[in-house]
Simulated scan of single mutants.
Amino acid sequence: MPALAKFRPIKNNLSVRGVVNSHDILVYQNHQYWFKETNKKSNTSRYVCCHKVKSKCSAIITIRNGDNSIKRYNENHSCNSLMNDARRNFIAQNVPERAIAAYFPDFNKISRTLNKIRSSNKPSIPEEFSSFELSGEYTKTSTQNEFLRYDDRSKTKRIMIFVDDGALKMLSEATDWYMDGTFKCSSKQFVQMYTIHAYIGKTTYPCVYIFAQKKTRENIP
């Protein structure tokens, strides 16, 4: 591990959200760490695994307060990590992220946590939705590939299409495409989210996400 490995703390969006004088939760190497103490002399902060009490996990991470670089890292986790051993093996074997995603927990089990994290970072939505414009990082994937490919900015029948080049390649190589429209998972500004999936090797992969303010066939390009 590099001596100055960098990572970014995320604000606590779980049980202590909104509590005065609460500390950040650190996420590193697929584990969460809770603040323990600050050493003013060395200008560092120490965090312990969030399972320290319940599972008696001894993993500890110490960071330099100036640049959030790691000073000391004890990775002896005796608890269950955020990813199981199978997922770790997938990553070690360079299995594509889309394939790993198929083994993640059911969305209903993690949706509340995800929504809290998203709400703390996403831009506010104006009352007149047609004036809302996505730009910068919100139009790209985490690997900085173009993701938002179409937005007609209509006042009453707005359509937004998200797909990256990797997904387009998967669709071009797929033996079949599967398409489906769902209303439950759509954001409140849209009526439905329409998805296109690629069928490759007996597995379907979501590739295209279309958000529409109408649900008629004529409104889907």
Rank of each mutant, 00 (worst) to 15 (best):
M193S: 12
C79H: 12
K122Q: 14
D152T: 03
D85I: 13
D180G: 14
S120G: 13
K169N: 10
D106M: 02
S111E: 06
Y178H: 15
E127D: 08
S81M: 04
L168Q: 11
N108E: 15
D152P: 06
Y194R: 10
T182K: 03
T139Y: 14
S130V: 09
I91W: 05
S187L: 10
N121W: 10
D106V: 02
T113F: 14
M179Y: 12
Y194D: 07
I110V: 14
Y150P: 00
M160L: 12
R158I: 01
S172Y: 00
R87A: 05
P96T: 02
E137D: 13
P126T: 03
M170C: 07
E128F: 04
K122D: 08
S120R: 05
K157F: 10
Q93E: 15
N108S: 13
A101L: 00
F90P: 04
N80A: 06
A99W: 06
N115V: 13
A102C: 04
T182I: 00
R149L: 02
F183E: 12
N80I: 01
V163C: 08
R88N: 08
L82S: 14
I196M: 06
T113Y: 15
S78A: 14
R112L: 12
S81Q: 06
S186M: 04
A167S: 10
F90N: 14
F104A: 11
E173K: 01
S186D: 08
C79N: 09
D176Y: 09
R118F: 05
I91Y: 04
K184V: 02
G166W: 13
K157A: 08
L168P: 01
V163T: 05
F190T: 03
R149T: 02
T143S: 05
I125P: 05
Q93H: 11
T139I: 15
Y138F: 15
F190S: 03
E146Q: 03
I125V: 15
I91D: 02
S131Q: 15
D152H: 06
C185F: 08
M193T: 14
T139E: 14
I110Q: 07
N84V: 05
N121H: 11
M179C: 11
D85L: 13
G181Q: 02
S130I: 03
Y150F: 14
I117L: 14
F183S: 10
N115R: 11
A167H: 09
S130T: 06
V95G: 01
S131R: 11
M193W: 09
M160R: 13
W177N: 12
I125K: 09
F190D: 07
S135Y: 09
H197P: 08
E146P: 06
W177G: 08
I125T: 04
N145R: 10
L171E: 09
S154G: 06
F104K: 00
F104G: 04
I110C: 12
E133V: 08
Q144T: 03
F132Y: 11
N84G: 09
I117W: 15
L82P: 10
L114F: 13
P123L: 00
S120V: 08
R112S: 11
I196T: 12
R158G: 03
